[in-house]
Simulated scan of single mutants.
Amino acid sequence: MIGPGHWATGISVRCDSRGGWGAHVDFYDEGHGDDDPGRGRISTEGTLRTRYFVGGSGQVDALTVAIDTVKADAEKLGIVWRDPTVYYEGGGESQGYPPPEGWENLVNRHAARLGWRSCYRQDTT
């Protein structure tokens, strides 16, 4: 277990060119600008991610599986959520992983499914 004091603000997702989904969570300890090497207090952070893009196959919603797997593993490690949401990597501007059409609503639906806040403007058309 990573232990108490490690937190994250949500899960980031990305889509590959074949429609597979990856997810990751960046987590941090309580330290922030207060490292004291003489006392052995050094702030740490980490990333937990799916190893591969998850593809869908009829009965499997790849994005749900990717998000839920990373969320469950983060919680097993003792990471707590602080005002969490689901993000699209790079805010949808990632050159390597352009988002699919309607990505804002898709990501917001997953945040709502988890009981988390939405972070993208809702499409009202």
Rank of each mutant, 00 (worst) to 15 (best):
L48W: 01
N108L: 09
A111P: 00
G91Q: 03
G55L: 12
R109L: 08
K76F: 07
R51S: 06
Y120I: 00
R113G: 03
W103R: 08
T124Q: 15
A8G: 08
Q122C: 01
N105L: 05
A111G: 13
D34C: 01
R49E: 10
P4K: 04
P100K: 11
Q95M: 13
S43Y: 00
S118R: 02
D34Q: 02
P84S: 14
H32P: 02
Y97S: 13
A112L: 15
M1R: 04
D26S: 12
E104V: 04
N105S: 15
G78V: 06
G96R: 15
A8T: 11
G92V: 07
R117K: 15
I2C: 04
D83E: 09
P99N: 05
P37E: 00
Y28A: 11
D61E: 14
A111I: 00
D73V: 09
D123I: 03
G3F: 08
S118I: 00
I79Q: 14
W7N: 01
G10T: 01
G31F: 13
H24D: 06
Y87L: 02
Q95V: 15
G22K: 10
Q59R: 14
G5M: 03
V70K: 12
C119T: 05
T64H: 14
S17D: 10
G38V: 08
D123S: 05
Q59M: 11
G92R: 09
L114W: 00
G20L: 08
A8W: 02
A72G: 06
V80C: 14
D29C: 11
R49Q: 07
L106G: 04
R18E: 07
H32R: 15
G31E: 13
W103V: 05
I42H: 04
T125P: 13
G90E: 00
A23Y: 11
L48V: 02
E45Y: 14
S43C: 03
G3R: 08
E89I: 03
G38D: 11
T9L: 05
D36T: 06
W7A: 03
D29Q: 12
D83H: 04
D68G: 13
T85I: 03
G22M: 07
I2F: 05
S57N: 14
H6D: 02
P84G: 08
R49G: 06
I2R: 13
Q59N: 12
K71L: 14
R49A: 10
V13T: 14
R18S: 12
G56T: 05
G115Y: 13
W116P: 00
G46N: 10
G33P: 00
T50P: 07
T64G: 13
I11K: 12
E75T: 12
T44C: 15
E45S: 14
G56Q: 10
G40Y: 06
D61L: 08
W103C: 09
Y87V: 02
R41W: 00
G19A: 05
G20N: 09
Y52H: 08
W103A: 12
E75F: 07
L106P: 04
G56F: 06
R117L: 13
G91Y: 05
R82K: 15
L63F: 13
V65N: 11
Y88K: 04
R113P: 00
M1K: 03
G115I: 07
G102I: 08
H110A: 02
R18L: 09
Q95D: 15
G78T: 07
D73F: 12
P100I: 10
T44W: 11
I67C: 12
R121Y: 04
D83V: 01
L114D: 00
I67W: 09
N105D: 15
